[in-house]
Design a protein around this nucleic acid. Structure first.
Length: 268
DNA sequence: CCCCAGGCGACTC
DNA sequence: GAGTCGCATGGG
């Protein structure tokens, strides 16, 4: 089915997909093909609007977070400093409402890794363990991941993360439903996530932000460290994350995405 | 060749 | 609690 959305300054599909929050998409001459769980969407830029061809309109309207007022968030975060420049540069970024389990495994793979390589590993993971949807494969279920074995994850190039993937998959398979975790507040949920093997503060914060849409978080990675190395010299990543949540408050997660994208794309 | 990547766990003190 | 170190792999 197809639907269209009018273009506004506050949603840009290229910025939204390329800001590092999601890995399962490909671009072909301005046209994006995106995969999420067991769904697929093709997004075409039609100058004054986006045309979206997908298997589930309701799913993708929620996924793209069209209900959030990004203009309001940006006006509340406007500090006239680097963040203002970053927001102007990445004004069209939306934070996608991704599946929690998909973000757990995607960001386990992301640690100490390059984005092109992360994409490849996730692609092979879906290819090998995900349900055949006819033309593509869904993201694997926890059960499929738990049954794969560490050697399988190593065989698709996960490197030393293979053990993390295996142990975390088997731990999550024992949890009745990940959705039970949604009732926890952000600090408690972070603690739960960090109890998983291979999930530290940074990966937990990415899962909180992208998989649970908690915005009172600030994932600190190598790029964010560079952004703040002068303002907060020699502050450890975990501590810096705490300081930045205090600084940016309930919209910290949005601020983080804009600053990350600005630093990485514009290289300032 | 070396350096690095959306870090983490294990180990030391 | 804070500081080091090794880690698999492949792109630049």
């Amino acid at each position: 089915m197809k639907f269209e959305i009018p273009k506004t300054p506050y949603f840009d599909i290229g910025q939204t997909l390329n800001c590092g929050q999601v890995f399962r998409f490909v671009e072909n001459d301005g046209k994006y093909t995106l995969f999420a769980l067991g769904h697929r969407a093709e997004i075409e830029d039609k100058k004054d609007r986006y045309s979206i061809d997908c298997d589930d309109r309701e799913f993708f309207e929620k996924y793209f977070d069209f209900d959030t007022n990004y203009e309001l968030i940006q006006s509340e975060l406007d500090d006239k400093g680097l963040l203002s420049s970053a927001m102007q540069f990445g004004r069209g970024i939306h934070i996608l409402r991704q599946d929690a389990v998909e973000t757990v495994f995607s960001f386990l793979i992301s640690q100490n890794n390059h984005i092109p390589r992360i994409k490849g590993i996730i692609e092979r993971l879906c290819e090998g363990l995900g349900k055949d949807m006819g033309g593509y494969h869904a993201f694997p279920t926890v059960e499929a991941l738990a049954g794969a074995g560490e050697e399988y994850f190593a065989s698709i190039g996960a490197g030393y993360r293979a053990a993390y993937l295996d142990r975390t998959a088997r731990a999550l398979a024992d949890v009745k439903s990940v959705d039970v975790l949604r009732s926890l507040d952000t600090p408690l949920l972070r603690t739960e996530l960090m109890s998983l093997h291979g999930v530290g503060r940074k990966v937990a914060d990415c899962i909180l932000l992208f998989g649970f849409n908690r915005f009172d978080v600030f994932p600190v990675d190598t790029w964010i460290k560079k952004v703040f190395e002068e303002e907060y010299p020699k502050v450890a990543a975990d501590k810096l994350s705490v300081l930045l949540v205090e600084k940016y408050g309930k919209y910290a997660g949005f601020a983080q995405q804009w600053l990350f994208y600005y630093k990485r794309e514009k290289k300032v």
